[in-house]
């Protein structure tokens, strides 16, 4: 039995060769179908958001500017509710980015982590973990906003 030190035990191939061989068996994802699903679910969420905003403007007499906050709050509430009922992850598996990109996806990432870590108590569990997934979005969102604000200020001064 030939045993070359470099070869993984009994396998007559390099890592590169293996990667090529393994790639053959990957299940191809239907990009068109996935994009369509993301489009219609994401679009529907946004349409629903617009519907809410119109209600806040026309029924509750908010201005188009101030109607944003209650609209987002309502979407967040519904997303957290669907997360708690165990529905949002199923929507997410179907819609991909369609349900991840809108504010509802952000709410889901926080609510799901909070629920998950309830077993470790309110302080170390819920409090310590609820931003586990959303934390990096907040950090890089703030950094990006700071940079954008800085650029805008410099251009104004020029």
């Amino acid at each position: 039995m030939a045993t070359k030190a470099k070869q993984a035990s009994g396998l007559h191939m390099t890592k590169e060769m293996y990667k090529q061989q393994a790639a053959k068996y990957q299940i191809k994802r239907n990009v068109v179908l996935n994009t369509w699903r993301a489009f219609w679910v994401g679009g529907t969420i946004c349409l629903f958001g617009q519907f809410l905003q119109n209600i806040y403007i026309n029924v509750f007499h908010f201005t188009p500017k101030t109607a944003g906050n209650p609209t987002v709050a309502t979407l967040i509430f519904l997303s957290a509710l669907l997360t708690g009922l165990g529905v949002y992850d199923k929507i997410g598996q179907y819609a991909g980015a369609g349900s991840a990109v809108p504010v509802t996806g952000f709410a889901n990432s926080i609510a799901s982590a909070a629920i998950e870590h309830r077993s470790e108590g309110y302080v170390l569990g819920v409090g310590g973990n609820m931003f586990k997934l959303a934390g990096s979005v907040i950090v890089f969102g703030v950094v990006a906003a700071f940079v954008a604000g800085l650029i805008k200020t410099i251009f104004r001064l020029l």
């Binding site: 997360t83 997410g92 889901n108 998950e116 997934l133």
Partner: peptide
């Protein structure tokens, strides 16, 4: 799921693999 991946109710899409 919780230890190796994401919270169970997180809506991230999983690949077919």
């Amino acid at each position: 799921e919780r230890q190796y991946r994401y919270p169970t109710e997180y809506g991230g899409q999983k690949p077919p693999s």
